[in-house]
């Protein structure tokens, strides 16, 4: 059995918006992008980190009692395991392929009944390629349907290998303009769009996901550029357009990260429908939401 370990920060059973049927979503930790609207800011760093829920704290002092590094936190996790109210939690843990598979396998019955399976999300799952390929292979051997939910920012060779064990890609397209993409996510979109084209040329199953973030990527110009890009693809694809949610604001505060999207409103249904209508001419099918 393979001894490769990966870092994950959550396993969410009964996921219903990350691909078909009832699924388990595994969130891998670490992401090369730093999207302004990131919903899982705790996932960006590849390292294990500490998250606090001060409203749960009962000031029992257990954390201080067990702390061996009061001057400089070493992220040893002692305080979190001692905290009785789970006001302190470690985000991220190392897990082997076997251990992870055991967790995924728990809901096989539900996958079978619903046409579901496992989804790897993140963070960026492609940033732990060896681990991802190993667990995908293992799932495929056991007949579990696999989905990779990705930004597409990875070495094309990795994408090619991962694709061999992936039944469906949920593939983000965040902005068509490279400079804007760089500004909003920290990286260029060049390799992302190339990888996407390649997957479609190779006849892989792909759903393109477009997060709609007001003032960032919802301009007519950007939607038009997206339409042109879709037209350039060798075949029509399915598209999900995803409504921006403010939920992340709170999470960013917990991580004492800057949230650069303050005062942005969630897009209205009418706006979403308008975008849907435009894109429908260039896609197999457009749906709002996952």
């Amino acid at each position: 059995m393979t001894m490769i370990k990966g870092t994950i920060f959550n396993i969410q059973r009964y996921s219903v918006n990350d691909g078909p049927g009832i699924r388990t979503t595994v969130f891998l930790k670490g992401c090369p992008l730093t999207c302004w609207w990131c919903h899982n800011p705790e996932s960006q760093s590849a390292d294990i980190s500490l998250i606090r829920y001060p409203e749960l704290c009962i000031s029992c002092g257990q954390c201080k009692l067990v702390c061996e590094h009061p001057d400089q936190c070493q992220l040893c996790g002692q305080c979190a395991s001692a905290c009785p109210t789970e006001s302190r939690r470690m985000v991220g843990k190392q897990i082997s392929v076997d251990e992870l598979y055991q967790e995924i396998a728990k809901d096989i019955l539900f996958y079978e009944e619903s046409g579901g399976g496992v989804t790897f999300s993140g963070g960026e799952p492609l940033s732990q390629p060896e681990f991802l390929i190993a667990i995908l292979k293992r799932c495929h051997e056991m007949g579990i349907h696999t989905v990779v939910d990705t930004s597409g920012f990875a070495d094309p060779k990795i994408v090619k290998t991962v694709a061999e064990h992936t039944d469906l890609w949920l593939y983000d397209v965040k902005h068509m303009d490279s400079e804007q993409h760089q500004k909003l996510t920290g990286v260029s979109n060049k390799i992302i769009l190339e990888n996407l084209k390649q997957l479609i040329s190779d006849n892989r199953q792909v759903i393109i996901r477009v997060p709609v973030i007001p003032t960032c990527n919802d301009s007519e110009e950007n939607i038009r550029a997206l339409a042109e890009f879709l037209l350039s693809l060798p075949r029509l694809t399915n598209i999900n357009i995803l409504q921006y949610h403010k939920l992340a604001e709170d999470k960013h505060q917990r991580f004492t990260m800057d949230y650069r999207l303050q005062n942005i409103e969630e897009p209205t249904e009418a706006q979403m429908n308008k975008i849907k209508k435009v894109l429908e001419r260039y896609a197999e099918k457009v749906t709002i939401g996952g």
Binding site: R13, I58, C60, Q62, P84, T85, E86, K106
Partner: peptide, 18 residues
């Protein structure tokens, strides 16, 4: 003994979580 109560409640394997 609220801290003990919280520990028992939160740090125990509980039925309903597979």
């Amino acid at each position: 003994n609220e801290a003990v109560r919280q520990m028992l409640s939160n740090k125990t394997p509980r039925y309903g979580n597979d």
